[in-house]
């Protein structure tokens, strides 16, 4: 694969993210309000919990968890299904067939450009704020560079899982024509099952076992657990291994669907 062919997509992504920064900032602030609601709810709960420990989480752990889960969700969010769905419905997907670059990868590299802007404008300030909050609450600096780097790698893998999952999802537009409704449905389900609201460790054991066979934990939960230092050593290794497995699996699936598309695509002329 020639990476050089894809760098223009990345710079286009950066430019569009800067041009439309208020769109994603508005969305980000809207999302973080709900995180604050959860923060206050947990604060009230912990105030009435003798011992201050719920499911192995202290209040500080929980605070770090929900904010890290929020920002990770923001970092790993993708519009791939929207882009794919729109091209299918509009018929512009036909033009993609004659271009010498991969459709999936060109979307990926455009989004990577946007992510760079989001990381610098939103994610880093939030993490700085979280570290500062942790320091004021516990009295010592908890930041560790290796942990943070592992988090970033794992969050990157999460994004890839999300991306290839979403690309496959986008091809549903061949069936449904309009993806708006199911996209909101998907967002709600993914947010919940990937640990965006409640740590997956709080789910009943049977559901947790089923979740072990599904890609959702790899989409967000793994990096958040690494960041909050709930995962150690071998656990990190096996969780990130699972992430890589899901990336490969979903990448393969998206390739397969694209190959089938190429052979069967019929677009109505205009």
């Amino acid at each position: 694969m020639r990476f050089k062919a894809y760098t223009p997509f990345t710079s286009a992504g950066i430019q569009s993210a800067i041009a439309y920064k208020w769109n994603f900032l508005g969305f980000f602030f809207g999302q973080i309000f709900f995180t604050f609601v959860m923060f206050f709810l947990w604060r009230a709960v912990f105030r009435y919990t003798p011992g201050g420990l719920i499911g192995g989480f202290t209040f500080l752990d929980m605070t770090l968890y929900i904010f890290a889960a929020n920002i990770t969700g923001f970092l790993t969010d993708t519009d791939a299904s929207y882009v794919v769905g729109e091209e299918i419905v509009q018929g512009t997907i036909a033009m993609r067939l004659i271009k010498p670059v991969s459709f999936n990868l060109s979307i990926l590299f455009t989004e990577l450009g946007q992510k760079l802007i989001i990381i610098s404008m939103v994610a880093l300030p939030v993490f700085a704020g979280l570290e500062w909050y942790g320091f004021t609450q516990s009295g010592f600096v908890q930041f560790s560079l290796p942990t943070f780097l592992l988090y970033m790698i794992s969050a990157g893998l999460s994004y890839l899982v999300m991306f290839f999952f979403d690309v496959c999802f986008g091809y549903l537009a061949f069936v449904f024509k309009n993806l708006w409704g199911i996209n909101i449905l998907k967002f709600g389900i993914l947010n919940f099952l990937s640990g965006g609201m409640i740590p997956l460790a709080f789910f009943p054991p049977m559901i947790q076992r089923v979740m072990g066979f599904l890609p959702f934990a790899s989409m967000r939960y793994t990096p958040v657990m690494i960041y909050t230092e709930k995962y150690h050593g071998l656990m990190i290794l096996s969780a990130m291994g699972t992430q890589i497995l899901w990336v490969l699996l979903l990448y393969g699936l998206s390739r397969l669907i694209w190959k089938l598309t190429e052979q069967h695509l019929t677009v109505q002329g205009g």
Partner: peptide, 22 residues
């Protein structure tokens, strides 16, 4: 656009459902 409207309503219903679980 019947199917679209149904999935939309279902989506908002499910969103509330998850909040309740919380």
């Amino acid at each position: 656009y019947r199917a679209d409207f149904i999935t939309g309503a279902l989506a908002f219903f499910l969103g509330q459902f998850f909040n309740l679980v919380f």
